[in-house]
């Protein structure tokens, strides 16, 4: 079945079997291997991508379901060589050890900061409760998001200034 999706701003088409999962469309057909497949059982959240701006577990969505929709993967965070504040936060705050959960953590927290640019620690922890880290790095993941939040707010302010 021929489907077309907008991935990180680019229109892409692919011919997929109905049973193809979204995560395999992203990795195998679109060659965007930043999205990881961890548990493959809707538990770990490593495969999280944004579907029309909403974070979902891409191992539990069929590729054919997203025909015509907009996807954002971890590859879409960096803009013109500039890391997203969250990526800087994970770097600066040691928000990862093995890095396997990181793409999912980034996409989930990206959506969090879009909705709520000034989250409390509790709100951050609740937001990532569907993303598992087995290096027990939650402490630093929370710090990474706290590092990024004011930068995201500044960026928004700056964008607003320009618009003015």
């Amino acid at each position: 079945m021929l489907i077309s999706v907008t991935v990180n701003g680019q229109e892409r088409t692919a011919d997929v079997e109905p049973r193809t999962l979204l995560c395999y469309l992203v990795r195998d057909e679109l060659s965007l291997t930043g999205t990881h497949v961890g548990c493959d059982t809707t538990s770990c959240g490593a495969c999280t991508v944004l579907l029309d701006g909403v974070p979902v577990k891409s191992c539990t969505v069929l590729a054919v379901q997203v025909d015509g929709q907009e996807l954002m993967t971890v590859e879409g965070l960096e803009q013109a060589g500039d890391l997203h504040p969250l990526q800087k936060g994970f770097w600066e705050s040691h928000g990862l050890q093995c890095g396997f959960c990181t793409p999912g953590m980034l996409m989930t927290t990206y959506a969090l900061l879009e909705r709520n640019p000034d989250p409390t620690e509790d709100e951050i922890r609740r937001a990532i409760s569907g993303n598992l880290c087995r290096c027990t790095g939650y402490q630093n993941i929370v710090k990474a998001v706290q590092y990024a939040a004011p930068l995201v707010r500044e960026k928004r302010e700056a964008a607003r200034e320009v618009a003015r």
Binding site: G45, V54, V56, K57, T108, G130
Partner: peptide, 9 residues
């Protein structure tokens, strides 16, 4: 219910 990502879907 489940976790925030599952609840989105």
């Amino acid at each position: 219910i489940a976790d925030p990502l599952v609840r989105n879907r």
